[in-house]
């Protein structure tokens, strides 16, 4: 559970009497470069897209280097298929494709002589009741954090992913959860992130007047497994004893995921 990990991390933070961090140099062996596919289908117009790239070596830069010339098709369970058009290197979209709850979508990508397939079923839409800013106090350091509220439907497994934007910039943190312990309850979830003052690239903490946008995605079980395994073992800073690639729902040997989800957004101004 996230709380256990949070608690142990805090415990560590308190107990560290003279901890120090430094950047070190490691000799990492280069490896093969598998394809990375991010496939998204939502119930909102203009959001359907598939991003294709390859892994980069550790010393390379962090920019997105898309792979052109792939053949990308989406099919719904009625058998209708659509061929996505490349709009910019590695980005394949279709402006008309909209998904609907309960339908199963299939993705097929052919690139570099390889074929990858995946499928995802769009779950039912859980309404995002409200989003608000609340103040929290950790050791005298008051921070404003975004809270979201929703009513979890009882009697069915539900999985959620939230994305937070502060003044248009996406917060680099994964917010995923299930309803294992909150089935049927009115859930309040805090999308908590911390701003490391030493790091210029971190999104600064929320202050009065900031525009906060939150996306709520209702995802299926396989996609939840992808995000939760990514969070626990592939972010580079996990506490897991055995870092490993996330459990993908794409067959054929690619990294990444294919997610059909319902999308809702709310925008608020921080008080």
């Amino acid at each position: 559970m996230k709380y256990i990990q949070l608690g142990c991390l805090l415990f560590l933070a308190i107990s560290l009497l003279s901890a120090c961090q430094k950047v070190i140099h490691l000799d990492l062996k280069p490896s093969d470069q598998p394809y990375v596919i991010e496939g998204i289908v939502t119930d909102q117009p203009g959001t359907c897209r598939v991003l294709i790239s390859r892994t980069k070596q550790f010393a390379d830069d962090n920019s997105f280097q898309g792979v052109s010339g792939a053949e990308v098709t989406l099919a719904d369970d009625a058998g209708d298929t659509v061929r996505l058009v490349e709009r910019g290197a590695g980005v394949y979209t279709d402006s008309m494709f909209i998904g609907a709850t309960g339908h199963r979508y299939a993705l097929q990508v052919t690139v570099g002589g390889k074929r990858f397939t995946a499928s995802s079923t769009m779950p039912s839409k859980v309404t995002l009741d409200s989003a608000y800013i609340a103040e929290e106090d950790f050791f005298g350091d008051a921070t404003k954090q975004l809270n979201v509220m929703y009513q979890d439907p009882a009697g069915q497994p539900d999985y959620y992913k939230f994305v937070e934007f502060v003044n248009g910039v996406q917060v680099q943190q994964l917010f995923v959860g299930d309803d294992q312990l909150t089935d049927g309850k009115e859930v309040t979830s805090t999308l908590r992130y911390f701003d490391d003052k030493d790091n210029k690239n971190d999104v600064p903490k929320i202050k009065t007047g900031d525009t906060i946008k939150v996306n709520m995605e209702c995802i299926d079980a396989a996609v939840y497994k992808y995000w939760s395994s990514l969070e626990s073992s592939a972010t580079g800073s996990s506490q897991s004893a055995s870092p490993a690639n996330p459990v993908t729902n794409i067959a054929g040997g690619a990294l990444g995921y294919f997610s059909a989800y319902t999308l809702q957004q709310k925008v608020i101004i921080a008080p």
Partner: peptide, 17 residues
């Protein structure tokens, strides 16, 4: 286990093992 490479998912850098 250290990474052998990296890639982007949802705008965030993820490591390949």
């Amino acid at each position: 286990t250290f990474p052998s490479g990296k890639y982007l998912i949802d705008g965030q850098v993820v490591y390949y093992y």
